[in-house]
Design a protein around this nucleic acid. Structure first.
Length: 154
DNA sequence: GCCAACGTTGGC
DNA sequence: GCCAACGTTGGC
């Protein structure tokens, strides 16, 4: 079992939206980055756990915990001509982009802000990918020690 | 295969 | 809205 961090803009999709969704489950679609796609394909497994992180908002930080609820499978939005994620270079025979299912687990008691995480970036969270310079990937892995430390902050 | 131009992300 | 950092594109 591995740990991950999924970024989402809360104005677009929040942990509360996931909690209110049918079966508290949704498709995590629209990932158009090859490195992240390869991570999804090769490393993410059903049953893995992930932090739900808020980006591009007033208070960036970790808001909740979700479960990866499927293996990666073709992202249907890439075949829809009307969709923002339509990709003319992809085909059903050889899909370029993947998505997976995510299930709500719980909200954190409070948002663990980026600012708070940064207070530990010299020590406990020295290796955390989220905090590394220039990181823009929408999914990053979280080490078990980092996971435990952050849960401890809560 | 190089690299400049361009687009996107995301914190501030 | 700005801008640093990075990924992608496309001409050569």
């Amino acid at each position: 079992m591995r740990y991950w961090l999924l970024k989402s803009e809360p104005d677009v999709f929040s942990i509360d939206d996931l909690a209110a969704a049918p079966k508290q489950t949704t498709h995590w679609d629209g990932i158009l980055n090859y490195q992240v796609r390869n991570t999804m394909r090769d490393d993410m497994k059903s049953g893995d756990q992930a932090f739900f992180y808020y980006s591009s908002c007033a208070e960036p930080g970790i808001a909740g915990i979700v479960t990866i609820n499927s293996a990666a499978y073709p992202d249907s939005t890439q075949f829809d001509r009307k969709h923002d994620h339509y990709d003319a270079g992809s085909s059903r025979d050889n899909p370029r982009w993947l998505m997976f299912d995510v299930k709500y687990q719980r909200k954190l008691k409070r948002i663990i802000t980026l600012e708070e995480l940064r207070r530990h970036e010299k020590k406990e969270l020295k290796e955390m990918l989220l905090l590394k310079r220039g990181n823009r990937l929408s999914i990053t892995s979280v080490e078990p020690s980092e996971w435990r430390f952050i849960i401890g902050l809560e």
